[in-house]
Amino acid sequence: MTTLAERPDVTRAGRSRRPNRRSDRTAIYLLLLPSLLPILVLSVFPLLRGIYLGFTDARAGRNVDVSFTGLENYRELLGDGLFWNSFKIGLLWALGVTVLQFLLALGLALLLNQQLRFRGVARVLAVVPWAMPPVVVGILWKLVYHPDAGLLNEFFHRIGADGLRTNWLGDFSTALPAVIIVGVWAGMPQTTVVLLAGLQGVARELHEAAAVDGASAWHRFRHVTLPALTPVIVAITSLDFIWNFNSFGLVYVLTAGGPGGKTMLPMLFAYEEAFRYGNYGYAAALGNVMVVIIVALLAVYLRRRMREAN
């Protein structure tokens, strides 16, 4: 009994004097294993496999032979009018939402950075859409855009502009802009919070010095605030663009891609290909194309920003 109880103490004392490197390393790996294993099996591996599937003719169903087809899927994509259409819509959506989101968020962040009344209310309101599940945001705006019972049409009626009443999400010409506005509403809060944090990091002394030198508000914004904020702006707009290009739930609930494919974002298109028609390989190929396009666009954007900074 006594020897058994004492032994651990001896080894522990020995370890604390001269750390045993090897057992430490084993301990680290044992601690990391429960996290790393699931990530490898259910995140890294599926991703690699997904990329590979894009070069095969995989289809839904059990016991279906999958064979490597190389660039066949991409050749087919090039000739697919629906794909090009969805792609154009995806770019319009992602660029439109990201740019509007950024401009509106910058304006709001600048306002919230001032000593204005109702600032507290605005801060709370600016965060609420961020907290909402995308599906709920979609439902919320469906209620606003509702042709009969919607807030927007009722507003136009009250101000006597009945001619502007329309079925916002059902009309060919208004569906995409209407959906883009929802995207802006949903994504603006996060961008605002990030930009506001950035603004609060801009040195006040610089502003005061510029003001003493007689610089106008616009000049101070252009030459003091904006340069200091640039890294934050580049980071958040890049992330916003990625998120918007890959977004799914919001538009799925709002229009499900309709009317007549007018809001068929690439993710919706891929979803339909994969899970309605069972074309796994083709859908994965579409995913691959999306990654390449995002990376290419981001590379161009980031390089231009870098060059401007130098």
Binding site: P46, L47, G50
Partner: peptide
């Protein structure tokens, strides 16, 4: 790095293999 990188990939690429697994 994986947190950032995984943002880049659309869910379509992940969902089919995950579904199969």
């Amino acid at each position: 790095g994986w947190v950032l990188l995984s943002q880049l990939f659309p869910f379509v690429l992940l969902i089919i293999p995950i579904f199969l697994i």
